[in-house]
């Protein structure tokens, strides 16, 4: 991926006076921040503070009680995000290749299977079902979604969970090249991933 990247329109997001609640309980009120093109935002906060809910609200899954999430420089906000949650969204019975093909169809992907398998070191297990793979390998499959179809905003919830050292290095490389091509990364983390964030958002308690 070149430094000029595929995202020419300088995608960015603005979170404006966001209030989220779940099950009648207010998680946080009036949270605002902005992430410009190329930004890497780390979201910090204690357990149950609403880090995951914040990412889900940006993805559009969770309707805010007040405030809004605005996208600039993207064609279709509903198709602007990739979301890698706690759960990997993989099926035990299906093989790695099945997942890659399915997601390519779902997201309209073009990245070649070989390139993805090579980048994430999944080449040797491409035809194996997920049930025989390790947690770390399952996480790598989930990360493959990020490169199957280019989308400007990545929402990562504890992306390094169960990844080994080389996995974390790959993740940091992916984030770096996404930023270089003009994308935005928002990651909720307990431990810093390693790369220096351009901004840290604390979810208030």
């Amino acid at each position: 991926m070149s430094a000029r990247g595929p995202f020419q329109d300088k995608p960015s997001i603005r979170v404006e006076a966001l209030t989220l609640s779940r099950g009648g309980r207010v998680l946080f009120e009036g949270l605002s921040f902005a992430a410009a093109s190329g930004a890497y935002v780390e979201v910090h906060g204690s357990n149950g503070s609403g880090k995951t809910s914040l990412l889900r609200a940006i993805a559009g899954f969770l309707k805010p009680s007040a405030g809004q999430v605005a996208f600039d420089g993207v064609e279709e906000p509903a198709l602007a995000t990739h979301y890698v949650g706690h759960a990997n969204a993989v099926k035990r019975e299906a093989s790695v290749r099945d997942h890659l093909r399915y997601w390519a169809g779902l997201f309209g992907g073009a990245a070649s299977e070989d390139f993805i398998a090579q980048t994430l070191d999944l080449g040797r297990v491409l035809t194996l079902p997920v049930r025989v793979l390790s947690q770390g390998q399952a996480r790598r499959i989930a990360l493959a979604r990020l490169i199957i179809a280019p989308r400007p905003v990545w929402l990562l919830d504890e992306p390094a969970a169960s990844l080994d050292e080389s996995g974390k290095a790959v993740l940091n490389e992916l984030i770096a090249s996404h930023r270089a091509s003009g994308g935005v990364v928002v990651a909720a983390v307990h431990e810093p991933l390693g790369a220096t964030p351009s901004q840290i958002v604390r979810v208030p308690r």
Partner: peptide
């Protein structure tokens, strides 16, 4: 139920369809 628990539903929501 399985799609809801393992996160597959989230991905369907982000689909272009």
């Amino acid at each position: 139920q399985a799609d809801l628990e393992d996160g597959s539903l989230d991905q369907m929501l982000l689909s272009r369809a």
